[in-house]
Design a protein around this nucleic acid. Structure first.
Length: 295
DNA sequence: CCACGATCCTGCTAGC
DNA sequence: TGCTAGCAGGATCGTG
């Protein structure tokens, strides 16, 4: 569920409260698979007594850096939420990890579908190697038109599949890929080698623009996503294509730019939403990137 | 390199 | 009301 804007929002929400706090306990691990490279005991031994020195994000991973070169990388996958609560607050269902801090607060990993994972590292270098193996460049700090053109050179796959490939570009998932392609006027099935340089430039700008706006709106709460305080984001009120195709008992909503009904297709077992007029296959759209407007 | 399917899980909803 | 099929924002692995 959470993509780059949601993880970034969570990181910002946790940074102030957690930096400088010391871990006093780790409990509640009821699902061993969520710790692929550790046990609750090893995790507790590594982090108890250590102080949080930074909260960061890389791709869709939330990073907790502790003193003594201990590090956690948390991936929420589809349904995970990281909630900061007081120790005496009511316990959420589907909580699979609780990290207690010296001010009485707790970081709770709540994840109904149990896809989420917490990775434990005993050095920054070890964590960097793990992340570098899995993640391409950061869209907001390492991407522009020329970087994207270079990365697309020689690639023949569908552009949306590439946007979803975390080793190609970090942080973009199904929802934002659809929104980005709509913004840039590019059909999700277009092959990478069919894109004109001007289209790639527009795509790079759309990626940064869509993600930046979504962060300002504190993420998209399409269904499960909550921030560190358990609050909803606002970006779901500004989606242009995602979730707007005809449903089983709902008519399609219209493209905010041209009024054409939004359509849906299946690509790699994921649904893709697009405007058949603004995002034509095999045709170059005139460059008119307009600001996203609320519905 | 690329496409596709299966897999890991639970909750929700549409439709019968 | 109850049941069931299908679907969900992710990532990995195996096959062709």
């Amino acid at each position: 569920m959470p993509e780059l804007p949601e993880v970034e929002t969570t990181a910002r929400g946790l940074r102030g409260p957690l930096v400088g706090r010391t871990v006093v306990g780790v409990t509640g691990v009821d699902w061993p698979r969520m710790l692929p490279n550790a046990t609750e005991e090893r995790l507790a031994n590594l982090v108890c007594g250590r102080t949080v020195v930074a909260v960061d994000r890389r791709g869709k991973y939330l990073l907790l850096h502790l003193d003594g070169d201990a590090h956690l990388a948390i991936h929420r996958k589809m349904s995970g939420n990281l909630l900061l609560r007081r120790g005496d607050d009511a316990h959420e269902r589907h909580t699979h990890l609780v990290v207690r801090f010296d001010d009485g607060r707790e970081l709770r990993f709540v994840d109904p579908r149990k896809f989420g994972r917490v990775y434990v590292f005993e050095s920054a270098a070890e964590m960097e190697a793990f992340l570098d193996e899995r993640l391409g460049p950061e869209p907001l700090s390492e991407l522009d038109g020329s970087v994207l053109r270079a990365r697309l050179a020689g690639r023949r796959g569908r552009i949306k599949s590439l946007l979803l490939d975390q080793t190609f570009l970090a942080g973009v998932g199904n929802l934002y890929a659809d929104e980005v392609l709509w913004e840039a006027g590019i059909h999700p099935l277009r092959s990478a080698d069919s894109l004109e340089p001007a289209e790639i430039d527009r795509l790079a700008e759309a990626i940064k623009h869509v993600l930046t706006l979504a962060i300002e709106r504190r993420g998209t709460s399409f269904s499960d996503y909550r921030d560190a305080e358990g609050l909803l984001g606002e970006n779901q009120d500004y989606l242009n294509v995602y979730g707007r195709a005809a449903g089983r008992s709902r008519p399609a909503q219209c493209c905010p730019r041209c009024g054409t009904p939004i359509e849906r297709l299946t690509l790699g077992q994921r649904s893709s939403h697009f405007c058949p007029r603004c995002q034509r296959r095999g045709r170059v759209l005139g460059a008119t990137t307009r600001p996203i407007r609320p519905r």
